[in-house]
Amino acid sequence: MSAWTPVCRLEDLAPERGVAALLHPVADEQEGGRPAEQVALFRLVDDRVLAVQQHDPFSDAFVMSRGIVGTRTVDGEVRTTVASPMYKQVFDLVTGRCLEAVGKHPVRDLPADLRTYPVRLRDGVVEVGAAPSALVGEPAGREVA
């Protein structure tokens, strides 16, 4: 597996607004290969780019990139966050940790926290790495028989 997938140029991303990206082409999956993996990419005002799984464990929909980016103070520390557009759970964009579940539980007992992906910038191109496999919960594309 190539460690890094180039996805777009930095200027393709609007600050504080997410986009979705596919880590492996859907064609791979249809040919029996790896399932398509959807990630949500966010560019911050300081041009850092962060990536988490696109799948929202609370609504079971692939929508995290469409959430609102912001900050939240946790234990005196300012964390960068994204809120699910579906039921408004708030996640730490750096660690993937669910900071507020708003009284709900993830579907199918999935982990409440989001998987994070390493991101790097090469010559203005945003590249996403593989998620540390230990943390992989739900595959990012749906598995259908």
């Binding site: 997938t5 180039p6 996805v7 777009c8 393709d12 991303l13 609007a14 607004r17 986009v19 979705a20 990206a21 596919l22 082409p25 859907v26 999956e29 398509a36 959807q38 990419l41 799948h55 929909a61 692939f62 594309g141 749906r142 259908v144």
Partner: peptide
């Protein structure tokens, strides 16, 4: 802004069924 995927704007979201 309406691209399904930034790196595959013409590929529909495979999760919808």
């Amino acid at each position: 802004r309406f691209a399904s995927f930034v790196n595959a704007p013409d590929v529909p979201d495979p999760s919808l069924a």
